[in-house]
Amino acid sequence: MQDQEKTQDQTEQTVSSQNGKAAEEAVQTAAEPSLEQKLAAAEAKASELHDSFLRAKAEADNIRRRAQEDIAKAHKFAIESFAEALVPVKDSLEMALKLDTPSVDSLKEGVEMTLKQLTTAFERNRLVEINPVPGEKLDPMRHQAISMVPAEQGSNTVVSVLQKGYMIADRLLRPALVTVAQ
């Protein structure tokens, strides 16, 4: 009987130890998500990131398209302010031609006023005149020598200006045509 009691005690201990282990595994399983739950969470995260990526890509495409449209508009309307400044000059010239019997003085006065309007339009749009003075050193970046003439001034200096040059901002539009001293 004692042997039976010992065996029964051992069986009870084994069962209780197995139950304890099972309980611990159940607690761990409840605390730790299953592989299916982990997979579902990862798929949801991947789907969310994919959606964010597609939205960001669409936004980048929209920004690129808008920038291209802005550049196209800038090219198309780049001379708009200059054109607006030239319209009054054209109006003045047309008015001068409408006069039935213009006098030399009225024509001269009209041409002077038109020249002032044109000069103002040039200044507003950063169109700068290149008009070197005699004796100024020849600048091949702004002047074009047409001929060399004997002169009493230093060599490679401007003797006379045949045609004024022009620059837009810092870019040469047309060089000044000059004669230079030998």
Rank of each mutant, 00 (worst) to 15 (best):
P88E: 04
E36T: 13
R65Y: 05
F77G: 00
S52V: 01
D170P: 01
G110K: 10
K76F: 10
Q2K: 09
S103R: 11
T7A: 05
S106A: 14
I71C: 04
E25F: 08
S52W: 01
A58M: 02
T14L: 12
E43C: 00
P175I: 05
A60I: 09
S106I: 15
I63V: 15
V180N: 02
V178D: 10
V104F: 12
K164W: 02
A31H: 02
A40R: 10
A41Q: 10
A151M: 02
T157L: 00
A46P: 03
I130V: 14
A26H: 06
M167L: 06
S106P: 01
E32Q: 10
G20A: 09
K45H: 04
V133Q: 13
A78E: 12
G135S: 03
A96L: 15
M1N: 06
V87S: 03
K137C: 00
L172T: 11
Q13I: 06
A96F: 08
A78V: 10
R65W: 00
Q163R: 15
A46E: 08
Q37E: 15
H75M: 12
P102Q: 07
E59S: 10
Q144V: 11
R174G: 00
S147T: 13
L173M: 11
S47N: 10
E94L: 11
T11Q: 12
G110C: 09
L99F: 06
A26E: 12
V89C: 07
Q10K: 03
K108A: 14
R174L: 07
D100M: 02
M95G: 07
R171S: 14
A46V: 13
E80L: 04
F77W: 05
E43V: 08
L115N: 11
D170T: 10
R55Q: 12
V89W: 02
V158W: 02
F82E: 06
T120K: 13
I71Y: 08
L49C: 02
L173Y: 08
A145T: 15
P175E: 09
T7I: 08
I79E: 09
R66P: 00
T119Y: 03
S81H: 05
P134H: 02
L39E: 10
V178R: 03
T119M: 06
L99C: 01
T114D: 09
P134G: 04
Y166Q: 05
R55K: 13
E123P: 01
L39A: 12
L93E: 04
A56H: 05
R126V: 06
M167F: 00
A23K: 13
L172E: 08
V104K: 15
D70V: 09
K38R: 14
D91A: 09
S106R: 12
L35G: 14
V27D: 12
V161Y: 04
A40M: 05
M1Q: 07
L99P: 02
Q144E: 15
Q10R: 06
G154Y: 09
A42S: 04
K108S: 13
V104I: 15
D91T: 10
D91R: 10
P33S: 05
M113Q: 14
V104H: 13
R64D: 13
S17L: 08
M148N: 04
K137V: 10
A42E: 11
N19G: 01
A22I: 13
G135F: 07
E43I: 06
K38V: 12
G135P: 02
G110R: 14
A26R: 11
V149R: 00
L177N: 08
L115T: 15
S52F: 01
A72C: 01
S147M: 03
